[in-house]
């Protein structure tokens, strides 16, 4: 009896005052937008300030009297043109592109092959290996950069950007393999069986069925590999010191700073330009990447 009355009470509270729900909902919306505005200001203020600085004249940057958040004495692109013509920025850019290209290629080949074998050709030890791959993904670069310094030194690769092509896969391959395993495992077994009956061998199965079906995963993995190889900082800082071998992150942070006076405008322009490729890539492929990234964890 009590149960019934209580339920009735709850129900009438729920249905009785429609306006109450409405007000609550309005408040929730209002609070959400307030939070979002605060967070967006927090998240966007550094890039905004970098952009403002990069478009200011040196005189205005140096002038303590003006509002640093605004451009009051005219927009200039001199920092950008200086960067592209007078510094080694373009060399860094080229080196970074080469490194990223090879790392992405190596990563995708290695991880797609491994993920196919681990998710479909179940062999002795494949379960342990899949776990192992995940564990290796958790190994940070800062744990191994010192022994690797000696090892690549022994190989004579120190101070060459090819060393990055060699070591970056340790950061990209495990995670890419892991998400590809997830995507491949979600392909129904009947699909391979149908392909088997249709006469596909392993390579055809991989190239004509698995890769096209798991294309979103492939895109996510590619973006991941690209971003890691573009943004890595520790390895190039430790292993590369010549200007002509330098990549963007380290080049911008170290060599552009040199000199008695910091060229803040140029520095900010460099940082923004160097960050542009991944940002643009995200702008277009954000959804794939987020899906790939979150599936790695949420599917578990």
């Amino acid at each position: 009896m009590t149960n019934v009355t209580r339920n009735n009470g709850a129900l009438s509270a729920l249905l009785g005052s429609k306006s109450n729900i409405h007000v609550n909902r309005r408040w929730a919306l209002f609070a959400s937008y307030a939070c979002l505005i605060v967070f967006v200001i927090f998240f966007l203020c550094p890039p905004f300030y970098m952009l403002v600085t990069s478009l200011k004249t040196n005189a205005e940057i140096a002038n303590l009297a003006t509002n640093p958040w605004l451009i009051e004495q005219g927009v200039t692109t001199e920092h950008y043109s200086h960067l592209l013509t007078e510094t080694a920025f373009l060399t860094y850019f080229k080196n970074t592109v080469i490194v990223a290209f090879f790392v992405v290629a190596i990563t995708m080949v290695v991880s797609v092959l491994a993920a196919y074998a681990l998710s479909r050709l179940g062999f002795w030890g494949s379960g342990v290996m899949a776990t192992g791959v995940f564990l290796v993904y958790l190994v940070p670069d800062s744990l191994l950069f010192i022994p690797l310094f000696n090892i690549v030194g022994g190989l004579g690769l120190l101070n060459s950007y090819w060393v990055l092509v060699l070591v970056y896969p340790t950061l990209t391959v495990p995670f890419c393999t892991w998400i590809m395993i997830g995507y491949f495992a979600s392909i129904p077994k009947e699909l391979d069986e149908a392909a088997l009956i249709d006469g596909a061998n392993h390579m055809q199965m991989l190239l004509k069925v698995f890769i096209p079906v798991a294309l979103p995963g492939l895109i996510a993995a590619t973006i991941f590999a690209f971003t890691v190889s573009w943004a890595s900082f520790l390895y190039p800082l430790a292993y590369i010191y010549s200007d002509n071998q330098m990549v963007l992150t380290v080049g911008t942070v170290t060599t552009l700073i040199k000199g008695d006076v910091f060229h803040w405008g140029g520095l900010m322009a460099g940082a923004l330009l160097a960050a542009a490729p991944p940002v643009i890539l995200y702008a277009f492929l954000m959804d794939y990447y987020i899906a790939g990234l979150t599936s790695g964890a949420t599917k578990g």
């Binding site: 009947e190 699909l191 069986e193 392909a195 006469g199 596909a200 055809q204 004509k208 096209p212 079906v213």
Partner: peptide, 25 residues
Amino acid sequence: AMVFQNYALYPHMTVFQNMSFGLRL
């Protein structure tokens, strides 16, 4: 030739490509 319960059609291929896959291989 086998027909599966959940169809097992290749999702990225058109009907024509699905039907001709075995022949093309």
